[in-house]
Design a binder for these strands. Structure first.
Lengths: 197, 197, 197, 197
DNA sequence: AATGAATGAGTGTTCATTCAT
DNA sequence: AATGAATGAACACTCATTCAT
């Protein structure tokens, strides 16, 4: 039933997929409707048949992306029993997703402000979901006596913030290998700290 | 003799200050030369008397900002003796600087790619400086027997990444208070970890 | 069915025609896209729907012009049998074309240097075509025993250069009549010389 | 008494000399007051102390140039006795002058129209002088029985036009050597013609 | 369902010119 | 006599969006 042709699919989906790649590489601002039209093999005005505006395309892309992230992370986390591994797998899955594209439009700041109405909610929602997920891991680990946490909310937020840094590997033009090494070290720090106990 | 008027100052400085505010709020892409001209009470073409291009204005702003950051952090760090406090004060000074402006243009991704030539160098340089500073703190702490670190380079990078997350308090619309609390918790995690030893 | 309205025609053609008049009168540099837009009754941005840039409009105009010139000259030349008349008709057709517009953008020097990339090729090509055409006339005349030429290439070039001067009737604000008279005299000189044999 | 420093001279002269070089290379339109200021080692506004406008600088340059041309040509012509040589030397001196600079601002068309007021007169005047000079040579040659000319005015104009072509060697990207060869051939044609007598 | 054509509102940048000193 | 500072007017070009078909 499935053909290899992307063109046979739901045109909305075709556009979203094309736009996803462009947004990921160039961000919202730098990606033009012309670009999206070309990439999705449609006329520019056709995009407006399926989407209200460029912003509408963008939010659709983000929504899809977030759904994918949530599913992937949720599944990966549940596959581990050890709380430390659960956290580790959470971070790694997240990283795999983020590092797939050099740029992560989810984290584009400029766009965030230009279009804070819609995007803000999406991102906030996703962040809250991440924090909640971390919190669940912490509770799970505490129940198992592996983690030593009392302020679950605060610590979840702290870990969340620490992991946010992983979204910006570009700053020091790090290679995939080095990023993985840095991630492992960061995980280690977060679990054990740097102080001599 | 001093008047309160910004207009009496060095026009280059006046422009930079005006631009700083705009860049911080709207990013490089969304801030127009028209905006900067209006904000600095000058004709648009006057900006080109003092700066070669918009990018040049931007770079000047960033350079100033980075210089301020380096000075503030360096001084704060040196004022503490305890390695843990040294690290803490490093993070807090950094945070104070970043949270002063809702948006931190230093971390604007889109612009980063559009103009990676000039900006890249500045940011890389600053990031390397931060990592080096962290490394120095770690070495100091290790020498004092407070920290338990061997891979200084790797751990510096890990901590650097973790702190990067603090540049994005906007993700969860956090208040200043909550951000400070989160920072304290993050610091605690980084120093002691979450695992029961 | 045909209306007299230029507006019903192919828009690309409408723009080219409008631009042709402007370029002829004011040259490339002085003619703005705004001007062309106004003259062709289109929005400025519409021009960019049909042409990549101002230079692109210009090149299109020139190409059209050159094609017309080549056709007109080629046909006229072939219509004469006597070699002297062939040369005469060559010059006259050329002149008719050039004198139709006060200014001949083909010969605008400033533009030539500003945009030498594209225009250079066109002009070179046309000049070479003219030289070749002259050479063919000379060969034809020599075969018929009318012309006394041996260095065909050199003499073709020399005649070409002499005729170039006709593109600049403006220098001495000459009337159409006087220009024609001067042309006839020039032709006579080129054929018979000024020296008493 | 003379110092080697151009700066010690009459500032007006210094500016004119600097502008001359720039106009010759880039034409009036492409040469900015900024360029002239830099080249004459003066502040941009200083130019306006000595000249009313850019156009004023330009006409001053042209006037100087024309004076030089007239002097050089006049002198060279008078140095020859043979009428043919007189004409030959006229052309060669002219050519030497024109070919010294790849571009000859005197012949820039675009500028001609942009500023036809002043420049027109200058150029017309110079052209008339050239035509008159040619006429004098023809009369001299006729009196000596070397030239076979009756319509002195018409033939002067024809020769003038033919020589105008030499101002545009750029069209066929000709080398100095080839230009000289072409000039010799053109001279030969003008004196003897191409027809078998 | 899909699009070619068209456009308004901007964008960064240039430059001749002015003027207070 | 000389100039640093400032500017208005223009310029080529971009792009999200609209609309008739």
């Amino acid at each position: 039933m499935k053909t290899g042709m992307a063109e046979n699919r739901d045109p909305r989906q075709v556009i979203i997929v094309a736009a996803k790649g462009l947004f990921a590489r160039f961000g919202l601002g730098k990606t033009t409707m012309e670009d999206i039209a070309r990439a999705s093999n449609k006329a520019k005005s056709t995009l407006y048949y399926y989407f209200k505006s460029k912003e509408d395309v963008f939010t659709s892309v983000i929504m899809l992306e977030i759904a994918g992230l949530k599913a992937a992370i949720g599944q990966a986390v549940r596959s581990e029993d050890d709380p430390g591994d659960r956290f580790r797998v959470f971070v790694e899955t997240r990283l795999k997703y983020f590092s797939k594209k050099t740029d992560q439009y989810i984290s584009i700041r400029e766009d965030y402000h230009k279009h804070h109405g819609l995007i803000n909610d999406l991102l906030d929602d996703y962040s809250q979901w991440e924090i909640a997920t971390i919190k669940r891991i912490l509770e799970y680990g505490s129940a198992k006596g592996v983690f030593d946490v009392h302020d679950f909310v605060g610590v979840s937020r702290g870990l969340f913030l620490a992991l946010k840094g992983l979204e910006y590997p570009w700053v020091v033009d790090i290679s995939k290998n080095e990023l993985e090494k840095s991630t492992a070290i960061l995980l280690d720090i977060l679990l054990k700290g740097v102080s001599r106990n």
